[in-house]
Amino acid sequence: MERHEARTAMEPMKPVEPPGAQGDGAGAGTPGRFPESPARAPLPSPEAIRATVETEPPVSTDLEPYPPDSTGAVGDGAVGGGEEAARPVGERPGADDGDPLVLPLPAVAGQPPGVERVEVVVDGWRFEVRLEPARRAVLRERARRSAGPSASGPRVVRAPLPGRIVRVFVAPGDEVETGTRLCSLEAMKMENEILAPAPGTIERVGVEAGARVEQGDDLVVIG
């Protein structure tokens, strides 16, 4: 009986249109993610929750509970129906090929109220995921967009771990492609090459060979 109860608890929900599942490198909450047409994207239902995986680019999904009296049938089109609603289904690997783990994460500085962060481990991959009411996220994005476009802006490449800079391969003004070597960082007995995450022009190089860096220190700014 316990298991049956558990299932009904899980059923009353279904996915609605994921706002940014494709990811375009612009980052969650940046403008350009929603249609520029005068017609505003409709707000998700008040109960929907947005999960944003803080990867580069971010991946997000909105999930909305079924009404409590719903049968929970899939694809009935009652809430956010149609193919959009079914989208995440096809992208799910089988349910048995890994154990998703959800673990609490401590709040970070500047975390807006109503937002919580969890760690999710899927197939051994570890992600930090931001959870918030989808409606609130959409409103915040609209507010940010109306405040003026910020474009993608310069990208700061930070030290992924503490160590020592062995060599710097780029100088300000250099054009780099995705994957261009920026510098090499010695840590844990190994030399690690730091690669450009995106194409652009080097605006600033914040380190020199021999420098000690801490995790998160700015290494290079790509414009």
């Binding site: 608890a9 009353p12 947005r50 999960a51 409590p68 969890v118 959870l131």
Partner: peptide, 19 residues
Amino acid sequence: AARRAALVASTWALAGTSG
């Protein structure tokens, strides 16, 4: 895995608000 993580997290969060 990232797409699946988004689903897992939102499902997990909704499990607490599903009524």
